[in-house]
Amino acid sequence: MSEFFQLIVSGLSTGSIYALAAVGFTLLWQASQTINFAQGEFVMLPAFLVLALSVKLGFPLWLAMPLAIILAVLILGVLFKRLVVEPMIKHGTLPLVIATIALGVLLKEMVKEFYSPLGQPFPSLFPQDVVTIFGAVISIPDIANFVIAMGAIVALQLFLGGTRTGRSMQATAQNPDVAQILGVDIKRMVLYTFMINGALAAIASILITPIYLAKFSNGETLGLIAFIAAIVGGFNQIRGALVGGLLIGIIDNLSATYVSAEYRQALPLILLIVIILIRPQGLLGTSEGRTV
């Protein structure tokens, strides 16, 4: 029983990090119908920004991390929006999908070529100690990751629901035309969404990379998981992506122990297919209606 509890807790911890990536994914979809196939690479890259700043340029870690987050907001938020999404959005969804796939390859290859093709150790923010709760051994980083990731999502929800800018962003996502008529600067709101996605990806990156090593190929699985989490939870809901992320985290952890290691990866995929079959709008999503 205590083993089960342990698995749930560490599943919630990684799941909350997945949720960060999935929420960002959902935000981009809502704001601009961008299906970001490079989302995994967006989570891979900031860890290397931290490493570049701290190891190569000698910044102390406490400075390198916030700087990396700011850089991520600029590169993955503003530049991505201005250089890739904006000139393409008028062509419809498909060219943008292709372009984000290409962007993912580009980011991956750049890290591989200009930083290192090998996995790099990445400093953890927290002591690697454990605490015992009800007989279950739980590591401090797990708890801290969960608290920070959830904190970020709660803060985002408060911002979206409680501030004027946040509500303008929601209005833009729901109906850009009406929002514009009511005086919302929709272009700016979409830009904010992209910047938030950059920040979420950076936080996820800093939290998840110490668990593995920092490697150029980290984005492949992370992107797929963010994807699955967003769809399982409900593509058009932030809390959907949150639930999806946590669920995938728990399933991932439980299946590593109780299902064969070979098919561990398959479980989230099967979950995805089952969800699409029986509840295409996702667990918490509302139906967008059939288009064809």
């Binding site: 969804t93 994807f227 398959a266 995929l269 995805l272 297919i273 295409p280 967008e288 059939r290 288009t291």
Partner: peptide
Amino acid sequence: PALRVQHHFLAFVTLAFNTLVFLVLR
């Protein structure tokens, strides 16, 4: 099943399917 629902869902289903096929083959 994929085409029963929204238009972009075939992309997601096939994405998962490709990885599943890879796992089975391996």
